[in-house]
Nucleic acid binder design. Sequence first.
RNA 1: GCGGGUGUGGCGGAAUUGGCAGACGCGCUGGACUUAGGAUCCAGUGGGCUUCCCGUGCAGGUUCAACUCCUGUCACCCGCACCA
Length: 800
Amino acid sequence: MQYNYRNIEPKWQKIWDERNPFAAKNDYSLPKYYTLVEFPYPSGQGLHVGHPRPYTALDIVSRKKRMQGFNVLFPMGWDAFGLPTENYAIKNKIHPKIVTERNVARFKSQLKALGLSFDWSREINTTDPSYYKWTQWIFLQLFKKGLAYKKEMAVNFCTSCKVVLANEEVVNGVCERCASAVIRKVKSQWMLKITEYADRLISDLDGLDYIERVKTQQINWIGKSHGAEIDFETTAGDKLRVYTTRCDTLFGATYMVIAPEHKNIEKWKSIIKNYDEVEAYKLAASRKSDFERTELVKDKTGVRLDGVNAINPATGKEIPIFISDYVLAGYGTGAIMAVPAHDERDFDFAKTFGLPIIEVVAGGNIEEAAYTDVAEGKLVNSGFLNGLEVADAKKAMIKFLEEKGIGEEKVNFKLRDWVFSRQRYWGEPIPLVECEKCGWVAVPEDQLPLELPDVESYEPTENGESPLSLMTDWVNCTCPNCGGKAKRETDTMPQWAGSSWYFLRYCDPHNDKELASKEALQYWMPVDWYNGGMEHTTLHLLYSRFWSKFLYDIDILDKSEPYAKRTSHGMILGENGEKMSKSRGNVVNPDDIIRDYGADTMRLYEMFIGDFEQSAPWNTQSIKGCKRFLDRVMNLVDIVSGTGVTPELEKPMHKLIKKVSADIDNMRFNTAIAAMMGTLNTIYDAGKITKDELITFAKLLSPFAPHVAEEINELLGGKDLISVAKWPEFDESKTIDDTIELPVQINGKVRSTVLVPKDADKDAILAIAKSDEKIADSIKDKTVIKEIVVPGKIINIVIK
RNA sequence: GCGGGUGUGGCGGAAUUGGCAGACGCGCUGGACUUAGGAUCCAGUGGGCUUCCCGUGCAGGUUCAACUCCUGUCACCCGCACCA
């Protein structure tokens, strides 16, 4: 039976569209399963073959769960605010809304051509005012609870374009579009206090089924560290506070370093003798990003503050103070005590500047390198700490600091608050007004959504303000509080905002009273299985968990964690093994693949390409194998005869059901397909198959290649959709062979294999092994030292 | 630099988690069918000095047994907070 995918794929897609068998039901008494994939940013390039990999994977999971009787929610939408659309709009003078509509239409038709079982009736779009009304509403709740605040922040500013740039738009320190110098400009920005949730974001990971590397990456990103803050007296008559995780090494602090932005520099201006030099260094540092600054370059740079010294509170000695850009203003107190003997960065700096290196923990060779091991070594040269282990020394030091009132224990996080302002047009307007009398005031909730006004130009303004700031009619307003003169906030939200809660909207996407009804949220949440890229592990995943916890705290959600399970797929690389990108010219368009091989083949290949969690290079040649497999499966329709069980296929079929079911649950799609290929070969060897067996085979195949499965089912007389048929079950006893082939090793090398009954005991197995001709030959005239029999696994005879 | 990960035939990968390394597929070789083959079918396919030996980035170690565990080392990939 030849099959023509160009006819049958559109045919079944149309039928699915009409009958809508994949819509999630609003019957909350059914067992539910919520599968989620990251909704795409609808870029101008359309889908590339990387997109369908995770979509197909969770489509397979969703289809299987439906066939197992679950009420499945598997939705799709568009994360459509963002920079590329805005830049395209600026360049081509087209409204970003139009650009977005176009891109969404293209993406949607491409996704539909893949036969994905999304519930399209729940489609959402973050740029839709009926959606971002609730994004704004959540922001207002954060604002009202004091979790949104304004802070001076450095931003990238192109001196030529007069535009605030994203980090990505800064390439080698210059503007991506005009190659002019980029400076760090200080602006007042809205911030969200995600750091208040830092502890919970770590501890609540405990009960969750996230793959391990996602958990560790989150924990490390949040970066909880235990340490102490210590005050150092200075010769300027004031104090300089540092944060350290190694307060035990205080006796070894031979100098101090403060960040170039540290406020004391301004304060000490009159007593710093080399202020010009310091100022010049500050300027140079302002041109670097944090990333460039912490990158360990060969030579550390810095300038000593001539005229001010600090006093080490442990030794009482005067030590110099430097500014250097390896110390960041945003972490800890923006100042450190430098212990070159036990910190690599301090060691390098001390070597460069010829500063004293004093060993205070024995165990290393500080002539050669800093000794940073905290598990081993005792304190030396450290007064009252001498002889203590590092951990004990830390405790003793904290006690000392607290008694003297010059410091205390302190927990610090690497996690920083979330910069929530963008000086851009294509984002959700921040629904706040600044009143001359009342300060920042929330736009009343009944006035939401605060819609994005139409502007003439999407370019940010001369001074780096958002394009919205030019719309005086829109900006000038009255204060909702006192009725006085007020101005609207003209910054917009980052793209992260809309994606921080979208999974909640899917639960009840058309609700105009609430972001979603309480019942819908109680029923559907949490997401049972969320798959997405590793690149979203630290930002999107953390931001959305943060918002969920906040919504839990204000009683919108009854669970504080949004995702019960999180997995991550590997990237599909170009044929040359490099990341697919337009600039590398190695992008493969799924449209071409669907045209030449069909959607089922494309789906199958993307799942067969390798371990789902690992990246794999695309190879158009290899697709043929998947096409051949589907052709051969279709051909079974011609040899099918009778009903019931074919004796030689009974066990292979039961094994296959078991294997495919387990592999889907464990996201081992590649081996599930390999098993189906193997069984198909067995069927061909047998040369026959019954109708019942072929239908079972089609059911197992249907999550992977749904069009082919539907077609086979129809050809065999099936009236209902196989996509929602009952998933096959297996009989465990029929998956076990009566005899097992066991390898027999001599001295760890396989010399023969023997067939043993499945329930034979060790002695029986050994006897069979020894009666094997080859084995008997090997052990005669030799001394047997040891005999190892692992039933079901192996026999190893050690001889001399 | 910091954090996370990967390394197995010509290629993508598999190996029940310490038990036959290379399942399944691509490619390749030979054959069948054919006017034709970039279709289909059949057989073979890690390497070598082929009763045997070697082989999972590299160097050691533990074990009856190591792709799997331990120590060291090299290479590559992803993220680094205004790309999404």
